[in-house]
Computed example of a mutant assay.
Amino acid sequence: MIHVIATLSTAPGRRQEVLDAFAELTPKVHAEKGCIEYGAAVDEPTGHPAQRLVGDDRFMVVEKWESPEALEAHHSAPHMVAFRDSVGDALTGVELLVLSPA
């Protein structure tokens, strides 16, 4: 199993637009072979001194996959290509952390 933490950056003021498209995408990803967990998350400010906020124009995707191969297949799945096309320039960047359980 692998863990993936993705940070998606959006054009200013367009996060909700991308989140709406992401909500339509999510059930398709859940149906993919090897998907264990996949969901978007936004800041929940707590005031904790160690907390770092993601910000208004970014959100995180928390994922678990059975294998690196399942993750690779996910990236090229037709619904992922369609998602990227649908959000166009509203999505300005993606950063991934791919981790193994310690």
Rank of each mutant, 00 (worst) to 15 (best):
V61A: 01
V42P: 02
M80P: 01
P45N: 06
K33Q: 15
L8K: 00
A6K: 10
E37M: 13
G39K: 06
V4F: 08
T26V: 12
L99K: 09
S76P: 10
A70E: 08
R14H: 07
D56N: 10
G34D: 05
H3F: 14
E44Y: 11
I36W: 02
D43W: 00
A50I: 12
L19W: 02
G55M: 07
E37C: 09
P49M: 11
D56A: 06
P101S: 05
F83L: 05
A6F: 13
R15V: 02
D89F: 11
P101W: 05
P68R: 14
D43H: 00
A11P: 03
V4P: 05
V54G: 00
A23M: 05
C35F: 03
L96R: 05
E44M: 13
P12F: 08
V62K: 04
A41R: 13
Q16S: 11
H3G: 10
V18W: 00
P49R: 13
H79V: 04
A11N: 06
L99C: 12
G88E: 02
A82P: 02
M60I: 08
A21H: 06
Y38D: 07
A90Y: 00
G13I: 09
M60Y: 07
H3K: 14
A90H: 04
H30V: 10
I2E: 10
K64Y: 01
A50G: 10
Q51M: 12
M60W: 05
V98D: 12
R84F: 15
V98R: 13
E37P: 03
K33G: 15
D56G: 06
E69P: 00
V42C: 13
P101C: 01
G34S: 04
S100T: 15
V81P: 10
A11L: 08
T7A: 03
K64H: 04
V42K: 01
V4Y: 05
D20H: 09
V29Y: 05
P78S: 04
E17A: 13
L53Y: 02
A77Q: 07
L96Q: 01
P12C: 06
S67L: 07
S86T: 01
E32P: 09
E66W: 03
A31C: 00
E63N: 01
H48D: 15
D57Q: 02
I2S: 12
E72N: 09
T92L: 06
S76F: 14
F22A: 08
G39L: 06
A102W: 09
H48Y: 13
I36V: 15
A11D: 08
S100E: 15
E37F: 09
P12V: 03
V94C: 09
K64N: 03
A82I: 09
R84D: 10
R58G: 06
S100R: 12
H79S: 04
Q51P: 09
G34A: 10
D43Y: 01
E44L: 14
